[in-house]
Design a binder for these strands. Structure first.
Length: 487
DNA sequence: CTGGGGAGGGGGCCC
DNA sequence: GGGGCCCCCTCCCCA
């Protein structure tokens, strides 16, 4: 039945009390039906075009197989493609390609079919990989469906009493951990998702349901942190504001219920290989864990995290027709991509909250050695030859280093006189302008210094204003205690 | 309340 | 791959 005949049919059954005018609720229902029908037809048309490779402007290479698709559909369906295609927006007219090695052709077929039909063909054998791919592609609705599928397929509560942890391997799923797939199709996905019965078939065709909003309980995905992007698009830069430090790769996509974690041996890209998946009830995680409380040592350091996620992190190539690939490494926690793996490793620290470089002088911790160095030079060594008061340039002769707690800064002689020399103390052991010493030695730098909570109070601890003689001799300073001494 | 400057943090990229 | 530099941005403090 086409839209017009639908309209005719529905228009003929008017409410008796309002001759000539359809009842408002009927109008509303009618327009909803038309809209729904139109969307469905449109999607069907696009799907047909895709299958006939008509107007396809994207090629997705998965394990050697090329999937043709429309960038509009990919863009609209996947946060990952949204990011990827946004980056190539300047080449709007050029066909673009992306290659994946992190999931199988079959998995991408399921994903692509979902994009074009709203139907998710899940089975007990593919659900984990589909979910992994969906996580990679940032398709939170698909993740949600997978979770619902798994939840309904497992009798979690019974095992929860034993150890709160469930192991789910593909072998287990095949041997009965998840019911054997039975082809099943329904257009009422909402009902299926809301109340999966114990007799729920393991194979679903889940229809995309706009009512299910899996974003609601999660922190919104940060957009790629690009130069010039708005603050809201970038990952929060201050620890205090990093409301949700994602220590778990899938945490951001797990709105309650169960958290999925990928074991060290389990790479999503290792199609067909045994994976070490575990499902952990969210309730067993403390809120501090979920929020990435800074008081608790991070279980996942960037390095470890990086090592455990080689295939998830993966390599993605976005290249154009001249077959000149631009290799990018994608952050598993956000949409950010980098050119180098080392940069990704560095970037991961902003998610893990790891700060391996503490300042021994004031206990502040830094994500990078260079930040620590900069901090130390600025705050504790007064290397800037600028009078803090009048902002004029000073030399070793025209200015002196003022020591205030662990802070040091320079004052020109004039400002010094204005401050009053009587109230200050001179000390010849000032390392201002000197060397870093063991603070920044390559061996010491990333080991971390002994830190205590009390040390946090060290900075600006109310020490009297002290002026120390500027002694910039590097050789001398190297032999001295490098930690600034407040006398 | 607002603007300026300092400090910190993150990305790109070179060595 | 690590270190380091440069640049840009945001936040915070202070006048």
């Amino acid at each position: 039945m086409d839209i017009l005949s639908e309209m005719r049919t529905k228009g003929s059954s008017q409410t008796p009390g309002e001759p000539g005018q359809p009842h408002p609720s009927r109008v509303s229902a009618l327009s909803a039906d038309i809209s729904s029908s139109h969307q469905s037809r449109l999607l069907q048309q696009l799907d047909e075009q895709r299958r006939q490779e008509l107007f396809c402007d994207c090629s997705v290479l998965v394990e050697g197989r090329v999937f043709k698709a429309h960038r509009n559909v990919l863009f609209a369906s996947s946060g990952y493609f949204r990011m990827l295609l946004s980056q190539g927006a300047q080449d709007c007219g050029q066909p673009v390609s992306a290659s994946f090695e992190v999931f199988s052709q079959d998995t991408f077929t399921v994903i692509l079919d979902f994009m074009y039909s709203g139907k998710l063909d899940l089975t007990s054998t593919n659900v984990i990989e589909v979910m992994s791919a969906a996580s990679y592609l940032q398709m939170t609705d698909v993740i949600g469906y997978c979770k619902s599928f798994i939840k309904s397929s497992l009798d979690i509560s019974a095992k929860e009493e034993d150890d709160h942890y469930l192991s789910l391997s593909e072998n287990a799923s095949r041997s009965g951990g998840v019911r054997e797939p039975q082809d099943y199709s329904s257009s009422n996905a909402g009902a299926m998702l809301k109340s999966p019965s114990s007799s729920q078939p393991a194979s679903w065709h889940i229809y995309n349901s706009p009512e299910v909003d899996y974003h609601k309980e999660t922190k919104s995905e940060p957009e790629p942190a690009k130069r010039g992007s708005s603050p809201s698009e970038q990952p929060s830069r201050r620890m205090g504001r990093r409301a949700l430090q994602i220590a778990d790769p899938e945490l951001h996509a797990s709105p309650g219920g169960y958290q999925f974690s990928l074991g060290p041996e389990g790479g999503a890209g290792e199609t067909g290989k045994k994976k070490d998946w575990s499902i952990q009830p969210a309730a067993t995680r403390s809120s501090s864990e979920l929020k990435g409380a800074p008081s608790r040592p991070k279980a996942e350091k960037a390095d470890e995290l990086y090592n455990t996620l080689p295939t998830i992190v993966g390599v993605v190539g976005l290249f154009n027709r001249d077959e000149c690939p631009t290799m990018r490494f994608k952050c598993p926690f956000c949409t950010h991509t980098v050119k180098r793996k080392a940069d990704l490793k560095r970037h991961l620290r902003c998610h893990t909250g790891e700060r391996p470089y503490p300042c021994e002088a004031c206990s502040k911790r830094f994500t990078r050695l260079e930040h620590l160095r900069s901090h130390f030079q600025t705050i504790h060594q007064a290397r800037k030859l600028i009078c803090r008061k009048c902002k004029r340039q000073v030399t070793e002769l025209s200015g002196r280093v003022v020591c205030e707690g662990t802070r040091r800064y320079r004052l020109c002689n004039e400002c010094l006189l204005e401050s009053g020399c009587d109230s200050v103390v001179f000390d010849s052991s000032d390392p201002a302008g000197g060397v870093m010493g063991p603070y920044f030695g390559e061996e010491e730098g990333d080991k971390g210094w002994p830190m205590t909570d009390e040390d946090d109070l060290a900075e600006d601890s109310g020490a009297d204003l002290i002026i120390q003689e500027v002694e910039d001799s590097d050789e001398e300073l190297e032999q001295k205690e490098t930690k600034p001494v407040v006398s």
